[in-house]
């Protein structure tokens, strides 16, 4: 288990992925600490594959991934760090909460590197931070969709992650809950100071939350920039089409 130094000490995330198959990838971007970078694109564009490669759950054929001074993946040098050693926080699309464990036990699974007596108070503090006081003993099935998402966020933060990865985290909740959770994320990120990557197909969400946005299509990043700038100035007709904008004259 790695050390548990404050995450703010860690530098930015740099990603470059290339492969022709089985899933085509041609993506390069960087995300500074404290920055929220959105990966947008239609379903099947390869967004989740990029996220899984960063988490260490998918090994592409070519490219590099570095986080500050640490090399997580370097295809040429044959470097590959396991997901356990990368210390990323990942919120899965369907949350992937352990159904047989309480909310607290779910969070504690990500605290195994800490001394045993510290785990419970830390898990309870994290659950309180995401607004789940008094619900620590409930199992995922006894929580609403929004509450499950909060447990998933608390579990992701429990590792004091170097990077926070969010895979369509608001897709499975209703509109009202989504707006509340998005507001909460904005508050949360002020305290985090780590790179945050948000995968979404919802452009409004990207525009509302992201500092940078990359438009992904069939594994390839077509354009990267501030969401407003990309929306105002799509680099090609294809980008305009993906962003549902009128084609350039």
């Amino acid at each position: 288990m790695g050390d548990l130094a404050p995450s703010s000490a860690v530098g930015g995330l740099r990603v470059r992925l290339r492969q022709d198959g089985p899933i085509r990838l041609d993506a390069a971007f960087a995300c500074a600490p404290g920055e929220l970078h959105a990966l947008v694109g239609p379903s099947g564009a390869g967004k989740t594959t990029v996220l899984k490669a960063i988490a260490g759950l998918y090994r592409p054929k070519g490219g590099e991934i570095t986080c500050g001074p640490a090399v997580w993946f370097d295809a040429q040098a044959g470097t590959w760090m396991s997901p356990q050693d990368r210390r990323v926080g990942l919120v899965f699309q369907n949350y992937a909460l352990f159904p047989h464990m309480s909310a607290q036990a779910n969070v504690e699974t990500s605290l195994q590197g800490r001394p045993r007596p510290e785990r419970e108070p830390r898990a309870l503090a994290l659950l309180a931070q995401v607004g789940l006081e008094g619900k620590a003993h409930r199992r995922p099935a006894d929580l609403s969709g929004g509450e499950q998402q909060r447990v998933a966020v608390a579990r992701a933060l429990a590792r004091s992650p170097n990077v926070l990865l969010l895979d369509e985290p608001f897709a499975a909740v209703d509109r009202r809950t989504r707006r509340r959770l998005q507001a909460d994320l904005n508050v949360l990120r002020a305290d985090l100071n780590i790179p945050i990557l948000l995968v979404t197909h919802d452009l409004d969400e990207a525009q509302a939350l992201a500092d940078q946005m990359s438009v992904l299509h069939q594994g390839e990043i077509l354009q990267t920039g501030h969401p407003d700038a990309v929306m105002a100035n799509p680099a090609s007709d294809l980008v305009a089409d993906i962003l549902d904008l009128k084609p350039r004259a």
Binding site: M1, A96, F98, T109, G113
Partner: peptide
């Protein structure tokens, strides 16, 4: 997804087998 969530959370493959 559950196994991957365990690995990302820091659980070794053996701990993932035992706990999840």
């Amino acid at each position: 997804d559950l196994r991957q969530a365990a690995w990302v959370g820091g659980l070794s493959p053996l701990a993932t087998f035992r706990k999840v």
